[in-house]
C-alpha cells in the first residue's frame, strides 16, 4: 500500500478524513477550553482580591 492509496481510502476519503479531522478539532477544543476557563477564573479571583484590599484600606482611613 502506498500513501496516495492510503489517503484515497478506497474512494471514501471525504467521509473518513472529515470524521478524523473533526475528532481532532473536538479533542483540541476539549484541551483548550478548560485551560482558557482556568485563566479567566484566576484573573477574576485576583481582581476580587484587589478590590477587597482597596475597600479594606478605605475603611481604615
Amino acid at each position: 500500500m502506498n500513501w496516495s492509496e492510503f489517503f484515497h481510502m478506497g474512494g471514501y476519503a471525504f467521509y473518513v478524513w472529515t470524521s478524523y479531522a473533526l475528532t481532532l478539532v473536538i479533542v483540541v477544543a476539549n484541551i483548550v477550553s478548560p485551560l482558557l476557563q482556568r485563566r479567566k477564573i484566576i484573573a477574576r479571583i485576583k481582581r476580587a482580591i484587589k478590590r477587597e484590599n482597596i475597600e479594606l484600606a478605605k475603611s481604615h482611613e
Partner: peptide
Amino acid sequence: GESYRIIFI
C-alpha cells in the same frame, strides 16, 4: 470497504 474505518472514532 475502507469507509468502516470511521468506526474507530
